[in-house]
Design a protein around this nucleic acid. Structure first.
Lengths: 164, 164
DNA sequence: TATTGTTATACTCTATAACTATA
DNA sequence: TATAGTTATAGAGTATAACAATA
């Protein structure tokens, strides 16, 4: 007992971020448990649904996962008939990832479910705040991804492959 | 190339949360790499520094980790002389976790480092926004932790042990 | 009988290395 | 020589199960 919501780390942004992420991850995973790859599979669908068909590597970088993980992820999604791998005519090493018709309708379904999870997560905020929060976290995320300078000692930043 | 910051998932709160969390986790881990337990060890110190000495289980629940993980975490911190385990006089099964003098000074040091990481993460926001963001994510995190109703079918919610 | 804490074990996830094929 | 993708392997992290002590 006397558990409570973390007495001493209120001011800690790290605590808020991890607790929020943990809750969202659990709720989202449960919400889209029947989708191959879970919430991450949904992000793959959402990413390839717009713009030019990305390569697997571009997709992996955009989602912040290793390229080997992307292979498994796409294997599952392709087996389920939600995405399609097509050789890139401009570079025969690479593959273009496209969304299928079934993938598009799955995307609509799972996006709706996840939107409910998002709304539940942001329920403590009023409408204005929720809008501001979405805008701010997008800006923060975008900036963080643009400058992946972490604890890399002397590493090349411009490689674009990973954080280090 | 053409990687960019995730073309299609701008509107996705899930993408923003995971990208933000990933960046913060990497930066924070690098920043406090010499602290036993890393960022999570810091949260332990920050939590026990205020209020009554919590039990290991209360601590585990507050930080959202399994009680078995908390054992390892506290082993490391105790070996480093940063925390102290004391039998709870009111319940001889439980142990009270206290911070040592060395732990307090370590907490100050690492809190300062992490504050820099936080500021770097929130750099895209102006001062007013950053303050609002901190307030909002704390409210969201607190509410999420209070109602851990995830994908639990019929499970007992009031158990308080875990999310399910 | 239920709970706190510990330990050992198994499992999941991710990264590393090695390989093929292209560039 | 470097890169995209795949595969196999090893590693880190986590949860599960069993146990002892106490309530």
């Amino acid at each position: 007992m006397t558990t409570g919501p973390a007495a001493g780390c209120n001011a800690e942004l790290g605590w808020g971020l991890s607790a929020t992420m943990r809750a969202f991850g659990q709720w989202a995973s449960a919400s889209v448990a029947d989708l191959p790859g879970g919430p991450r599979g949904h992000l793959v669908l959402a990413t390839i649904a717009q713009g030019r068909p990305p390569s697997q590597l571009a997709l992996a970088n955009a989602l912040g996962v290793d390229r080997t993980v992307m292979t498994y992820l796409l294997d599952e999604l392709e087996t389920a008939g939600l995405v399609e791998r097509r050789p890139d005519p401009a570079d025969r090493r690479a593959r273009q990832i496209l969304i299928t018709q079934r993938g598009s309708s799955a995307l609509r379904e799972y996006s709706a479910r996840l939107r409910e999870v998002e709304d539940r997560l942001l329920a403590p905020l009023d409408e204005r705040e929720a809008t501001a929060f979405r805008s701010m976290i997008e800006r923060v995320a975008r900036a963080a991804q643009t400058s992946p300078d972490a604890g890399c000692p002397i590493d090349d930043i411009a490689s674009g492959a990973g954080p280090c």
